[in-house]
């Protein structure tokens, strides 16, 4: 039985050979930039500009030397940027997730006054361009003396209307009212019902929202670029952008900076790639919820 169905699957896969070849070409396209960065971060400045094959390793492979240069350049500023990005991603991601889980659950499970109105305001907010908020938020924060501090980056990333929408949809479908009522009848308070009964049921969506908000903070560029002027507070995106600007401005004098930028780009994507691969099972389940509605 299994043997014949397996043979059938194989036949089907072979019949789809043209499609798979087409897919193969696309995979190559999506991987080329990664390949280029992996190869070229092994080179030193002469190897990079030497005009040898740009898609293959040069004679000398020097990851360790380049890593040392990357993490010691300008007093180890790159390591600081990575730590800053980590802090912003975790603080913003966890905060935004807590707010979104509570609000999504509240919208889904309580019929309170003002619910319809506030939910439609929330849906309208999904359409507000996030970047339109940067300039006025900067002005407000500068009045409060918050610009150029870590709070200027963390506080705005607590706002995640899409996360609330996603949690609302998920809580509505995945948490049956009957279970909540049963918990209440058994004498559990509202908060305990939420934490011990509803929360475990919402876990897949919680992981998705956490991952999406953390990624959004990690990727953020416009907001920290506007808010921060002290480069010791920069996240890695703004930092690398700064280096790239410097390197392009004096093209000849900063050849060594280019190899740092290439390796810096590679190192900065490794944490997220690992996070996505290891948490795959969780976010895929959650994304389907957001996509289907």
């Amino acid at each position: 039985m299994t043997g014949s169905s397996r043979a059938g699957a194989r036949r089907r896969a072979q019949r789809h050979l043209p499609l798979q070849i087409f897919l193969g070409f696309l995979v190559v396209y999506f991987l080329v930039p990664f390949w280029w960065v992996i190869v070229n971060s092994s080179k030193d400045a002469p190897g990079l500009f030497g005009g040898s094959n740009t898609l293959w390793f040069a004679g000398e492979i020097d990851y360790i030397g380049n890593l040392q240069r990357l993490f010691t350049y300008d007093g180890g500023i790159y390591g600081r940027w990575i730590l800053n990005s980590t802090l912003y991603a975790f603080a913003g991601g966890i905060g935004a997730t807590i707010l979104a889980v509570m609000a999504g659950y509240g919208f889904a499970k309580y019929r309170f006054a003002g619910r319809r109105f506030s939910f439609s305001v929330l849906l309208g907010a999904l359409m507000v361009p996030a970047t339109a908020l940067v300039i006025p938020t900067f002005m407000m924060f500068s009045g409060l003396g918050l610009t150029n501090t870590i709070w200027a980056v963390i506080l705005p990333s607590l706002l995640n209307p899409f996360g609330v929408y996603l949690m609302h949809v998920y809580a509505r479908d995945a948490v049956p009212d009957e279970i909540l009522d049963a918990a209440r009848v058994d004498g559990a308070g509202e908060l305990r019902t939420f934490l011990q009964v509803a929360f475990p049921l919402m876990r897949p969506a919680v992981v998705t929202v956490l991952l999406l908000s953390a990624v959004a903070s990690w990727n953020n560029y416009f907001l920290p670029l506007a808010m921060l002027s002290d480069n010791r507070l920069f996240p890695v995106t703004v930092g690398l952008g700064l280096w790239q600007g410097i390197a392009s401005a004096n093209n000849s004098g900063s050849t060594s900076l280019w190899s740092l930028i290439i390796l810096g780009a590679l190192v900065s994507v490794i944490p997220l790639v690992i996070a996505f691969f290891t948490l795959q099972r969780h976010w895929r389940g959650g994304l389907s919820v957001g996509g289907l509605r």
Partner: peptide, 13 residues
């Protein structure tokens, strides 16, 4: 995979 890459880094690459 590219989704896991910050848009800034993608542009740099």
């Amino acid at each position: 995979l590219p989704y896991a890459i910050p848009t800034v880094i993608g542009a740099v690459m």
